Amino acid sequence: MTERIIVALTGATGQLYGVRALELLVETDQETHLIYSNAAGLTLRQETEYELSDLEDLANETHSVKNIGARTASGSFRTAGMLVVPCSMKTLSNIAHGNSGNLITRSADVVLKERRPLVLMPREKPFNRIHLENMLTVTDAGGIICPPFPSFYQGITDMDEMITRTVARALSLMDVEISFDEWEGLEDW
């Protein structure tokens, strides 16, 4: 059975993480439902050479952030989960406090209430206390906070590979199988 994944991009820096998530999901049996904020479009143009139409071409279906009545806003729309990448602190705060004023936050609210995986990849640094409290609130509600921090222990120095591995790890939190080398451990420690 084909699974559905909701992928949302917000206006935070790190648009390549969202692009890569969509690129990786194209290679799976996942049906992707894309939602992006207006700010995501602005940041995408600033940070990359991609256009919103490129993202829409990678997704099976795109939903307007303004369409609070879209399929993803209902618990009867069964999904394997939702990935918000990158996740702005505004979106994180809205999700943490149940403010479902647009399709991204409404869909996240539905994913949480249906006890499905919600993976947020927040992009901000440093975190202030409000950010951390909002992350804890989302975690307590069942969400997963997965900041896109690259790992270095396997000797990766290529940024493209770091982005791919980071996104693949986030997708694995929703049981999406993307091939990447797992940590083998140290032989003699």
Rank of each mutant, 00 (worst) to 15 (best):
Q15I: 11
K125N: 14
A80N: 14
M174P: 01
E177I: 07
L136K: 11
G185S: 08
V26R: 14
F149W: 12
N60R: 10
L92F: 09
S76I: 01
P122V: 00
A96E: 10
P122Q: 09
F152K: 04
L52V: 11
R129E: 15
T79D: 05
H97Y: 14
T13N: 08
I68Q: 03
A168Q: 11
L120T: 05
L9W: 02
G81Y: 00
V85H: 04
R106V: 00
A21D: 01
L52R: 11
T137H: 13
I144Q: 09
T72K: 03
G11T: 06
E177F: 04
G69P: 01
L83Y: 01
G155F: 07
V85D: 09
T166G: 05
S179P: 09
A12V: 02
Y17R: 00
N94P: 00
S107F: 02
I95P: 04
E56A: 12
I144K: 14
D29S: 14
L25Y: 07
E47C: 08
I130Y: 06
R106Y: 03
I6K: 01
S53M: 09
L25G: 08
I104T: 08
S88F: 04
Q154G: 13
Y153F: 15
I6G: 02
N134T: 06
L24S: 04
L173C: 00
T91P: 11
D160T: 14
N134M: 03
L55Q: 03
N94D: 12
I144E: 11
M159W: 12
V176I: 15
A96T: 02
V119L: 00
T62P: 02
V19R: 06
G81A: 04
F127V: 07
R123W: 09
V7L: 05
S37Y: 07
G14T: 01
Q154Y: 07
E124R: 07
E184L: 10
I130R: 05
L42E: 11
A59P: 07
E187P: 03
L103H: 04
H131C: 10
S179N: 10
L112F: 07
V84I: 15
P117F: 00
